[in-house]
Design a protein around this nucleic acid. Sequence first.
DNA 1: GACAAACGCGAGCGGTCGCTCGCATTCTGG
DNA 2: CCAGAATGCGAGCGACCGCTCGCGTTTGTC
Lengths: 216, 216
Amino acid sequence: MSANQEKEQPRRRQARGERRIAQLLEAAATVFTTTGYTAASTNAIAREAGVSPGTLYQFFPNKEAIAIELGDRLMHEMRETYGEALAPVDPATPLEEAVGAAVDRFIAFNCEHPVFFALMHGPDIPGRIAEEHDALHATLLSRIEGLLSSLLPDTAPADLTRTAHMCLGLYKAGLELVLAHEAAERDAYIQELKNALVRYLDPLVGATLGHHKPRP
Amino acid sequence: MSANQEKEQPRRRQARGERRIAQLLEAAATVFTTTGYTAASTNAIAREAGVSPGTLYQFFPNKEAIAIELGDRLMHEMRETYGEALAPVDPATPLEEAVGAAVDRFIAFNCEHPVFFALMHGPDIPGRIAEEHDALHATLLSRIEGLLSSLLPDTAPADLTRTAHMCLGLYKAGLELVLAHEAAERDAYIQELKNALVRYLDPLVGATLGHHKPRP
DNA sequence: GACAAACGCGAGCGGTCGCTCGCATTCTGG
DNA sequence: CCAGAATGCGAGCGACCGCTCGCGTTTGTC
């Protein structure tokens, strides 16, 4: 067996090539968003990008790699934009504000990159992308769990995990509704999502800290 | 029963045929559940049922018809079992009880027929099934809206619709988590789903009726 | 038992899709 | 300026899928 140099061969790219890659990824995002990953054909992506199938395969070894690269770039942008957003666990900020800020940021990201939702929610997605999705999912869950554990110090870990799962599930449900509407109606759904999350969590932190506001 | 001939074909079936149909639908349910509708191949369904592809097409004109028939039977069973379940709008029953009962019934149905979730949530499903899904969706929404309007008489219709959408979305999110777990953990998620729904709705009916229980 | 209809089979047809290959064109380093 | 790498093309290959067809078997009816 010879040295395996297929791993990270420093393939020399020209500026033209980088442009093509960006163009192809953009086209792929469009096609994936409208038809989903499996139903999207590589020929359709190439057509959308205005190039031939052969050109597409000049830059991507296979269909999965397109989605992988797209996912990687989205992930990178997400980390860049919101990496520090979920980190601060200020126990002084009211729950409503903390939830509202987090929801606003993530909703904004998903609205700006609708393909993210398509890639992460497809029931048909192959191995590597599913791994990425699971990794992100796990990251988000542990982040949420961390936030919750500082709000609910005396709660069993199993309950904490379950609550985190519920929060993420509730967020996903709200996201779907938000993406399905526009303008004012969309904003109203964002508010409702915040309401649902806050009301779900409020009794927990209320019971723990004993300093929630009574109903007027 | 009268002669229930469809549009054109007074096809006479033998008992053997009816058995095959049931057998094929069961196999289809299995395959659809595990791989989703689009990824499921008719050959795989026939193999799962232990018959040849030709036999499958003796009873179904095409792949879509299999899913349609499966959907119809599920829908029928659902109406039979829960047709009257969501109807009674007893304003005297506490919100917690009403939500709990409704959730229990629908969760039970979805746990018993996991293919229902697969068929109704596939992002790849063709025309007729999507229509059925939309019809069911609309039916559930109007039912929920009806229940809500009796609880929240002085609420704008748009807000009512939005709240109904949120309830259904929250339920779907919870259902996904419930189906992903088993035994005790599943029960715990069912309880959390009920909590989320009740806490989301409680402030609304509390504000309207002014007779909610204060926190201990 | 005779006959037709319903049932059952599985090789294979037409079509699509992911992907390749041979060859032409454009860029870049020396 | 030119050798060679990078880019671009598109017909077409192999695999798979939905579905068909011809033919043999079983079943119901008289």
